[in-house]
Write a protein that binds this DNA or RNA. Sequence first.
DNA 1: TTGCAAAACGATAATCTTTCTTGTTTATAT
DNA 2: ATATAAACAAGAAAGATTATCGTTTTGCAA
Lengths: 134, 134
Amino acid sequence: MKNYELILKEHSLKVTPQRLGMLSIIDYVGHITIEELFANIRKDFCSISIATLYKNINSMVEVKILKEIKISNSKSKYEILKNEHSHMVCKKCEKLEDLNLCLDITIENASKKSGYIFDENALVLFGICPECQR
Amino acid sequence: MKNYELILKEHSLKVTPQRLGMLSIIDYVGHITIEELFANIRKDFCSISIATLYKNINSMVEVKILKEIKISNSKSKYEILKNEHSHMVCKKCEKLEDLNLCLDITIENASKKSGYIFDENALVLFGICPECQR
DNA sequence: TTGCAAAACGATAATCTTTCTTGTTTATAT
DNA sequence: ATATAAACAAGAAAGATTATCGTTTTGCAA
């Protein structure tokens, strides 16, 4: 990642300092909740409005710059939309990580079984991370 | 399903008409949002409070009688907790259906790759259902 | 550059959604 | 039957998200 200006332009969104700041934070931490992002960006833009944050999040989700990750028993997190991947959550330290899995066969099976034609999926695995296992 | 009274007792929750009503609706429709459930149960319990609904949903999720299904771009739905399974959503008619898939190999792979020990998963597939394909 | 129109911004009000509080009623175990 | 702990309804409160509106900024074109 890096050129957030270009990304915004490619998606026909105006380039504003607030948006650049948001993207750079999200990109840096990987995944973030609304309230974490708000707390974080206030360090750089002490007067940014929470309404601006929500509106920008929504615009960027809409044009698919960002993606919302819904997680059982916790708040949604947002990430920069990259190639499709799954997520895993550690139930102890609560961290969320990306996970690259091939679901082709699974999805093909699902398709055969159900008659659906699938083009999107959301998989979250829950467990204990290596560090918390000790 | 059927004996909701027993289910509540087994989970140490008191048996009330409101709870029985909720369970019977949820069981009947399979998956339901809070607001749908509220509209529905008001037909039988015209004076039930929304607070009661939320409290009961939360209690029943807590003791694992119910399960919340979080779905991208739509409101959470609740179902009666049965054996583990996945879900599929039709993007056209928006229906949500159960889907039984074996994810053992996928999860084993994920575990090998990441070092996590997984004991839970949430998979939702999005696409077009057979009816909407015509 | 400069100027214009459209979009974004901040502040705050409005609207959900969910939880909390309180006084009353009900379920269950004795 | 009765006691008590839990559940109930109603509404207030809290929290999360969206809408409104006057001001500022951006992107574009003269």
